[in-house]
Structure formats: C-alpha cells, structure tokens
C-alpha cells in the first residue's frame, strides 16, 4: 500500500454498504436528509461541513466539501473564513484547557 489516502476512494464510499447494507442505507438516507435544504440552506450546510472537515482533518471530506461549497455558490473568501472558524474553535479548545493547567498549578503552588 503506497498511501493510506487515495482520491479515487472517495468514489467508492457507497461500497461500505456491501457487508452491512441496512446500516449503510440508514446512514446514507440520514446523510442526505441532513444536507437537504432546511432552516439552513444547502450552501450554509456545506460551509459548516467544510469547517468540520478541517477540524477532523479528513482529506476526503475536505476534497468533497471544497467542491460542494463551490458548487453551492460559495467563494474562496467565505470558505477561508469557515476554516478560520474551525481553527479558532480548535485553538480555543486548547487554550481553555489552560485554565485546568492553572487550577492544578495554583493548587500545588505556594
């Protein structure tokens, strides 16, 4: 295996249903329902997905939702801001744990 991640595997996503078709069917139906137009537009949902994709660092999702965002009418400036939102939350999640560090340090310190 020359690489764990291959772009062409993205097209094979539905093959995951081969051994467990009922579960896959439920998952894909749910997935489609989630991304359908609702209180949020499809465009907004794709921007959220793009930000989450960067948070979980899934290359398939980043590829797919970069394409989806463009296809739903978003532009690179909006997509970059979405990635910054993910980055801020990730960075903030680290930083807020600094309070835990401070709590422990303060308890132990004179």
């Amino acid at each position: 295996m020359d690489s764990y991640y291959k772009p062409q595997d993205l097209a094979k996503f539905e093959e995951i249903g081969k051994e467990a078709p009922d579960l896959a069917k439920k998952f894909f139906e749910y997935y489609q329902a989630v991304f359908a137009e609702g209180e949020l537009t499809e465009r907004e949902k794709s921007l959220i997905a793009l930000a989450v994709a960067h948070t979980i660092q899934c290359p398939y999702c980043i590829d797919a939702y970069t394409q989806a965002c463009l296809g739903k009418g978003s532009n690179l400036a909006e997509m970059t801001e979405a990635v910054h939102v993910a980055t801020a939350i990730r960075g903030g999640a680290s930083l807020i744990h600094g309070i835990q560090m401070r709590n422990v340090a303060e308890k132990l310190s004179l």
């Binding site: 137009e37 537009t41 499809e42 465009r43 394409q67 463009l70 296809g71 739903k72 009418g73 532009n75």
Partner: peptide, 17 residues
C-alpha cells in the same frame, strides 16, 4: 455561471442570496 470546473448552484437559492 460558475467560476471554475464545477456546476452551478441551485437557481432559486442563488437568486434569493
């Protein structure tokens, strides 16, 4: 029309935005 190698967004949603 799209600025690249992708398909256009929904006409109704694009018009609204």
């Amino acid at each position: 029309n799209p600025a690249g190698a992708f398909l256009p967004a929904s006409q109704a949603q694009t018009e609204k935005r």
